[in-house]
Each structure stands twice: as structure tokens, then as C-alpha cells.
Design a protein around this nucleic acid. Structure first.
Lengths: 142, 142
DNA sequence: CCCTTAAATGCAACAATGTTGCATTTGCGG
DNA sequence: CCGCAAATGCAACATTGTTGCATTTAAGGG
């Protein structure tokens, strides 16, 4: 093997997170890591038809609890999940959320610095969030 | 009367927007304008018990369509609505969304300038969005 | 290699949030 | 005051997320 970035296997990530390595979890983690964008539950469900709806919810939940994935609501109020290593790569990006199709796009602009918070507030994540219509939906609308 | 800011009545706002002035709409618009923070459908429903659930959805929808209110999902994926004049006053604020209680807080920091968008993308709104735990929830957690 | 056990899964039922169709009521212009 | 389009209220449905419980499976110890 040459100089490919040797990324850990999904199984190794699960083990490192201290949770059981199961077929469904491997499939979900692989799907999340392969995805270019944060995925909704519905998208993952369509992709991984062999996995039960509820199990998928619980797997995603477990990933978030154990730091393997992040979870955030998109412009339509639907949760989207991203593998954490994939996200780190995209870390600090600016997001554009299409109000029509609900899609999330990562822009290449640098994110602004977060401001000071009031006393007692704990910052988990800062996101510069643009909302509007993506090119595809804008074209389709006419 | 002295120097109070003379704000238009809710009825005048409805007329200006070109939609019928009805009791339910007045109640909802008054509630939105009186609210210090963006309100969820559930909160408004609890506040305005005399209004039908579906009617409330449709009223909020009409307000958004006619520019009287804005609509955005909070950290828990629930839509929150704000009267547009109230929002204009708070325009360009930075928002902090508590991941525990779902509350939205307006910070006084200036918002950053939006970056350039890819071709074809239409920007409707830009928001600097901080997520984490608010002071109250952080205290309660311990 | 098998056994045990706790964890994970799958299924069914439920809860919350948002939407649609339709009959009735109401604002508002003539 | 009348008529009509718009708005409302109700019932039913759709989607998204949650809970309880019986069954299966991963992982560690004989």
C-alpha cells in the first residue's frame, strides 16, 4: 500500500468509542463516512433498507452520545447526522441550507470568530448559517 | 402623548400586508409581537387556547408568506416564529440555541458579513448560530 | 470452542409535529 | 344589507421521533 491516507476502519472507530461492533452499526458508520453531506434519518433509511427504522434512530443516537457523529436540525427542522471525522475535515465551514429541498451545502469561506457569551453559557458549536435557495431549486422554480 | 415609539396596530399591519383582519390573526400577531423570543407552535397554542391547532399553523404560514413573521427551526428541530418588526429591531443579532431546552437567545454581538455564494444560490437570510447549553440548563445539569 | 450475559436489534405501539380535504362561518367590498 | 371569496374549525392523515418488550448477537471467561 502506497501513500493513501490510512484512515481507521469503521470497526476500529466503534471499538475506540467503546461500543459493540455490529453489522448495522458498521453499515451506518460507513454510510455516514462516505456521505459528502450531513444525512437525514430518512436518507439513511432509504440507503440501508435492511436496518430497522428504530434501530437506525438508536444507532445514530449512540454515535452522537459516543462522539462518533454530530446531529443538527436543517432548515426544515429535520435532523441531519455527520460522521465526526468527516466533519472535522469540514470543520469550521460555513453552511448554506436550502429552504426548498432542505439540502445542506458546505461553503469554502472561513467561519467568523464566535463572540463572547453571557455568564454560564456553554458553547458546543458555532455555525455560520446561510439560508435561501440553492442553485438547483432556484432554477427549478422558474 | 409624549415621545413613545408609536408602533402600528396589529390590525394595520395585517391590512398593510393585504390579508384579512380576523380575531385569530390579531391574537396571534399580538402574541408574536409581545413575545421576547421566537415562539414555537406549541407555545402559541398553549397561549391562545381558543384558536384551533390547524388554524394556528395556517395563520403562521400566512404571516410568513406575507412577510409579517419569520420561521426557523431551533436546535431541536422545532419551528419558531417571530414577528418581523420585532425581529427587525433585533435584526442582525447572533443567536444562541440551547440544545437542552431548545430556547433561543439573542446575543448583542454584531453579526459577521456573509461570504460570497456559489453561482445560482439565492441568499434569504444569514444567521450566526451558536449551539450549546444555556446558563439555566447548565446549572440544572449539575 | 462453547457458554453466559449484557448489549443490541427488531417489532409493535405510541407521541409529537405538521398537512390535507371539506363543510361552515366571517370579513369586507359592492 | 348581500354575496362571495377567504378564513376558520374539525376530522383524518402523514411524517418524524420515542418507548416497551421479546429475541438475537457480540465479546469475554471457562
Amino acid at each position: 500500500m502506497g501513500k493513501e491516507t490510512l484512515s481507521p476502519t469503521s470497526a476500529a472507530l466503534l471499538r475506540a468509542a467503546g461500543i459493540k461492533v455490529t453489522q448495522p452499526r458498521l453499515a451506518v458508520l460507513d454510510a455516514l463516512r462516505a456521505a459528502a453531506r450531513p444525512m437525514s434519518h430518512a436518507e439513511l433509511e432509504a440507503l440501508l433498507v435492511e436496518i430497522d427504522r428504530v434501530t437506525l434512530y438508536r444507532i445514530l443516537d449512540a454515535f452522537v452520545r459516543h462522539g462518533l457523529a454530530s446531529k443538527a436540525a436543517d432548515a426544515r427542522g429535520v435532523f441531519r447526522f455527520a460522521a465526526r471525522d468527516a466533519q472535522r475535515e469540514h470543520g469550521g465551514h460555513v453552511h448554506f441550507r436550502c429552504e426548498t429541498c432542505g439540502g445542506v451545502f458546505c461553503l469554502s469561506a472561513p467561519p467568523p470568530a464566535p463572540p463572547r457569551l453571557p455568564r454560564g453559557f456553554l458553547l458546543a458549536e458555532a455555525e455560520f448559517d446561510l439560508r435561501g435557495t440553492c442553485a438547483q431549486c432556484a432554477k427549478a422554480r422558474r
